[in-house]
């Protein structure tokens, strides 16, 4: 790790939805950081708190969410930003790409209007200038025939094109941090790869830091520098992508890797059982109930995050043994 300051940082982030005994503890103490120019992949199944953690970075959680812990982007505490500073952060410093290109765009505005609007919000300037910039970014994300597409409504475009528009919109004001929330999940397999390659290319070209949320190990392996594996609202393992995917330390990561459908057609075993109810999370390791390697100590207390190598941590009481193994 270099001595540079992180672009974005979560420090013991906790997010709770609702109140009382039925409150859902969606995120339970997540700490992570992204360096400028780095791609961090948040990996985990649905409901593990990846999207919630990421939305917290832009304070985009619904008002009933109770957020505690530190959320910093470029050294600014996001929770304490004024309205104006928050708007400058959203779409200016950091921009987001959403999962569903079908619903992420306003259906009654043209694509060009929606991109230009963002440009005018952050850079001011004339409508014509904003429109010119919109055309520029549509070209940047390789929308064919961009000049004509500028005046198209979202429903007139295919899913892949719409996602390109969403990405263009995010890039319009040259953000230094790009947050992508399962940007390829809703797309056809062939389009998924195109979008992924595009995102990775743009990230390098523009030197952005990027947080990519996905449940797809292949996606993580393809584009990320580092991965953080989430389970039941916590990061169970974190580290450089090669190390984590080649030599996983946490039993959950190993289970995930084992459940990927293999090219040779051998049926994947999957992980038996299901994640815990986050209204009543277990006192110990959240994965203990499904873990093949669980011992008595697992259910006693939440395992602390332990360093297991350069830039690598894992939350598992048997971490020493697994590394040895």
């Amino acid at each position: 790790m270099t001595g540079a300051a992180p672009l974005a940082e979560l420090d013991d982030l906790r997010v709770q939805f609702g109140a009382g005994p039925d409150a859902v503890q969606a995120v339970r103490g997540v700490s992570l950081h992204v360096m400028p120019g780095e791609v961090l992949c948040l990996l985990g199944e649905s409901g593990s708190g990846k999207s919630v953690s990421m939305r917290a970075l832009l304070r985009l959680l619904p008002p009933q969410a109770r957020v505690t812990g530190g959320v910093q982007v470029e050294g600014q505490e996001v929770g304490r930003l004024s309205g104006r500073a928050l708007r400058a952060l959203r779409g200016g410093t950091a921009a987001m790409v959403f999962q569903e290109p079908m619903t992420a765009l306003d259906p009654v505005y043209t694509v060009g209007q929606q991109i230009a609007e963002s440009v005018q919000q952050h850079r001011g300037g004339t409508r014509a200038a904003a429109r010119a910039r919109a055309l520029e970014v549509l070209d940047l994300v390789r929308v064919p025939d961009a000049a004509r597409r500028l005046d198209a409504y979202p429903h007139e475009l295919s899913g892949g094109l719409r996602q390109r528009v969403v990405i263009a919109m995010a890039l319009a004001c040259r953000p230094r941090l790009l947050l992508a929330d399962e940007p390829t999940t809703a797309l056809d397999a062939t389009v998924q790869i195109q979008i992924l390659v595009l995102l990775r290319g743009l990230q390098r070209e523009l030197g952005m830091g990027m947080v990519l949320v996905t449940h797809d190990l292949g996606v993580a392996a393809e584009v990320s520098d580092r991965v953080a594996v989430m389970y039941a609202g916590q990061i169970v393992e974190q580290g450089p992508v090669r190390d984590v995917l080649r030599r996983p330390v946490h039993p959950y990561t190993r289970g995930l890797l084992a459940s990927v459908v293999r090219a040779d057609g051998v049926e994947a075993p999957g992980i038996p059982g299901s994640p815990p109810d986050l209204r009543r999370p277990p006192p110990g390791c959240a994965f203990a109930a499904r873990c093949p390697a669980a011992v008595g100590a697992c259910s006693a207390a939440v395992p602390a995050e332990q360093k297991v190598g350069p830039g690598r941590t894992a939350r598992c009481v048997r971490v020493g043994e697994s590394v040895a193994a």
Partner: peptide, 9 residues
């Protein structure tokens, strides 16, 4: 949410 994420008022 997209609109908010764009930083609109």
């Amino acid at each position: 949410t997209t609109l908010r994420a764009k930083g609109l008022t």
